[in-house]
Design a protein around this nucleic acid. Sequence first.
DNA 1: GGCGGCAACAAGAATTATTATTGACTTGAT
DNA 2: ATCAAGTCAATAATAATTCTTGTTGCCGCC
Lengths: 138, 138
Amino acid sequence: MHSFETTIGRLRSEGFKLTPQRLSVIRYLIGNKTHPTAAVIYGDLKKKYPSLSFSTVYNTLNMLEKIDEVQSLHLFDDFLNYDPDTGSHYHFVCRSCDSIIDIFPRNGENVSLPEGDISGNRIESAQVVFKGTCKNCL
Amino acid sequence: MHSFETTIGRLRSEGFKLTPQRLSVIRYLIGNKTHPTAAVIYGDLKKKYPSLSFSTVYNTLNMLEKIDEVQSLHLFDDFLNYDPDTGSHYHFVCRSCDSIIDIFPRNGENVSLPEGDISGNRIESAQVVFKGTCKNCL
DNA sequence: GGCGGCAACAAGAATTATTATTGACTTGAT
DNA sequence: ATCAAGTCAATAATAATTCTTGTTGCCGCC
């Protein structure tokens, strides 16, 4: 996700209206390093905006995903997690405590993905999910 | 998935009964390269075994996954695909035609995953999903 | 200022893949 | 043959997400 100003600028230029509900979801996500579900976002924002609707949260998330300001992650069976960081990084999921940890590859321990084609297919994105046991649970 | 004989041997040793329904699902999956959904498996087997129940297909798939003879893949939003190949390989999903293509890394175009720890977390498995446009759709 | 059109809203119903429940049936060992 | 344990099919239940409906509020235009 970009800065607040850049993000709302993108919304404006795409023709979306800047409603208080949308702005509250955007503010909630900016700089958020947890990977909240729609239900968590709704629950948290509901305290401050009691009239907020679940559908609005979903609609806003889908809109933000369409313009590539968030990505949805299928890390668990029954629900999606949303990640405001759309840059190239990977995720580690602890089988024991279900925590989600961002993995930013560094030299020596990085994940090298093939670029361009693999036998004629054009790769446009890659999702890498590690599962295991996290530091705290070990 | 192992050979038919090995797989049913494993079932037997784990204490599962070898019912015709289970055997039909196993036979359907062995050597299957198409990543079928539960619905597809059910639809195909229903022709030959009209009394087969959807639950039985799910139960059998969950059992096979538990003993690591299949893996379920969260490639799309609304359903799971089942892969009888539990060996280390990755998947490419075409955004245009939804086809699923196995990716077996070879030298020079492989995906090198970190082994062991990443900052203290123990990695036990990795799932890599590429999305893009397949050869046929390009 | 008042009016019309339209996007977005809230509330709740609907959808749908998967799981759980239930009661009848099979299997295999004794 | 009996009996217990496990499995089956049918169907109900679950729950995350999407859809529907009627309403609201904003903006441009008269």
